[in-house]
């Protein structure tokens, strides 16, 4: 039986008079990669920011594993097992890989010292090395290396591994392949599949439809703040999806798509 992980019901968000998100409802299941597609301004980033707690929603409900939740901060989202990885904004380049992996959740000794508690450096390094090994990038990477010395693909992989590390139920990837070379893009996409196979659910936001067809199970298309199409990858093709995104003769296409 398919296990529902995240369900959004009629999410709405306005900024002043701009209705960035008119109404969005969809369900994300366990071990599934869902691609969220749409042109610039379609409301994709508003939607994922709402889920990841960057700002509160105006109306609508969010359910995690069937439980209604309220997400008011990024911390709330993380505590619920929702990890968001933004292009370029996920890692601090001047910190080591190990320190980045545990940023905000540092293992410490003498916990009662609060923010002044000393980092458990040995545990930090060991856990980071174990993690790097598990995700298969240990040969090249040293847990003490600064993130600024890594390539874009390596950084994405580190950010995704970090989300996996904290047993995230839902991993949101915001444009994970932007600015990456061909080889690195394939590495990241392969990694996305591994993440899914490990039982995590992935919400993939991207402009690149080709990537979607390589890794996604389902596709959700947004236009002008609304979800206009939802299809399994097997039931559709690249051209159909492309025309839905751009909105060229939508009604006919949707009918056709549903008829299939």
């Amino acid at each position: 039986m398919v296990q529902e992980v995240l369900r959004l019901q009629n999410l709405q968000k306005s900024f002043g008079s701009v209705r960035a998100l008119k109404s969005a409802s969809f369900t994300l299941n366990e071990g599934e990669v869902v691609a969220l597609l749409g042109d610039n301004g379609a409301g994709k980033s508003t939607l994922i920011k709402a889920i990841s707690g960057v700002f509160p929603i105006d109306r609508g409900d969010i359910y995690v594993r069937g439980q209604k939740v309220s997400i008011r901060s990024t911390r709330d989202a993380m505590d619920l097992g929702i990890e968001t990885i933004h292009q370029d904004t996920s890692l601090a380049p001047d910190l080591s890989i190990a320190r980045n992996l545990f940023l905000g959740r540092e293992p410490v000794n003498l916990k009662w010292l609060g923010v002044f508690a000393p980092l458990d450096l040995a545990k930090l390094r060991d856990a980071a090395s174990a993690l790097l090994k598990r995700v298969g990038i240990s040969k090249k990477l040293d847990a003490d290396a600064l993130v600024s010395t890594l390539s874009g693909g390596e950084r994405q992989s580190i950010a995704i591994s970090r989300a996996m590390q904290f047993a995230a139920k839902v991993i949101i990837l915001d444009e994970p392949t932007n600015n990456l070379g061909v080889e690195e893009t394939h590495g990241v996409l392969r990694f996305v599949k591994e993440v899914r196979d490990a039982g995590h659910s992935v919400l993939l936001i991207t402009h690149n439809i080709h990537h979607v067809f390589q890794v996604a199970d389902r596709i959700i298309v947004m236009r002008r703040g609304e979800i206009v199409a939802e299809q399994t990858v097997a039931d559709t093709d690249l051209l159909t999806v492309e025309s839905i995104i751009t909105g060229a003769d939508m009604s006919a296409l949707l009918k056709e798509a549903r008829a299939k």
């Binding site: 990841s52 901060s73 990024t74 911390r75 993380m78 968001t84 933004h86 904004t89 996920s90 890692l91 601090a92 380049p93 001047d94 910190l95 980045n100 940023l103 905000g104 959740r105």
Partner: peptide
């Protein structure tokens, strides 16, 4: 180093 990254991690 990267304020947004830190904030996104709950710092």
């Amino acid at each position: 180093s990267n304020r947004n990254a830190a904030v996104a991690r709950g710092v």
